[in-house]
Amino acid sequence: MKTEVIKAKARKIFYSNEMVGYVFAFPFIFGFICFSLIPIITSLRYAFTDFSMGNKTIEFVGGANFKQLLGDEIFLKSLGITLKYVFISVPLKLVFALLVAFVLTRKTRMQVLYRSLYYVPSLVGGSIAVALVWKQLFARKGLFNSVLANMGLGTINWFGDQKLALYPLILMSVWQFGSSMIIFAAGLKEISPTYYEAARIDGANTFQSFVNITLPCLSPIILYNLVMQTIQAFMSFTQAFVITAGGPDNGTMMYALYVYNQAFKYNHMGYACAMSWFMLIVMCIITLVIFKTSRSWVFTESGD
């Protein structure tokens, strides 16, 4: 009798929303605490120390790391370069993604094939293999220069000039517009065709309906892509690491690469943690600015 009651009670608890919720959410909660929260707090603590690997005594140095940051020429340079990279590559990437997604909404039997074609660079772009190809494409005697030479133009020393070296990397990032494109495509599919019909009856051409219907309807998705791509661009590491190693003269020293170098090459862990935190703050500000301004351009469907 008693066990029955306990069983019933247990069942009730087991099937309660609280229990179900936490059972299902458990992996995330566990992962969040172990792989995000604890590391973040540890990182913050290290940012105020002179911590380096192998060094058993960790000394608290107060804000010295952050003070050093502001006087570190390479840090300032890499911050500037990363911002340049983000501000050029992200808008270009989104414009391409949106245009191509829009062009490909046209229903044809080839649609799936076309979309795959444009998705291929995103599929492979993050790989070492493609980074190495890219390095070869822009090498002194690489493909790009041989095209230029064939056309009778002078060759360009892409990786020898710090003003130019960033552009192959930007191009590589823009080239991988596929994943944003897919998300746009999914969004475009959900715009009700009646809007377009109504517009056509009103005599709007394709361009007008793009501006007046597509863009506003897609604006929440544009916002989403913008935020995600901006974050991703800030963290870009592999390309610079493999293709240029940050050179020439730190002309492609992406922020993430400099953090990596400080942490693992020069073994200044505390300093690198401070840099990571600085980056977190910068990104928070930028994301916040994006969200704030988004109120004026993101169109929300009424009644939802």
Partner: peptide, 20 residues
């Protein structure tokens, strides 16, 4: 928290995770 994780730059947690 989930949204925050999505926007968290990997570099921030790279070093401490490694040490853990």
């Amino acid at each position: 928290c989930m949204l925050a994780t999505m926007m968290l730059p990997g570099q921030v947690i790279m070093i401490p995770s490694f040490l853990i």
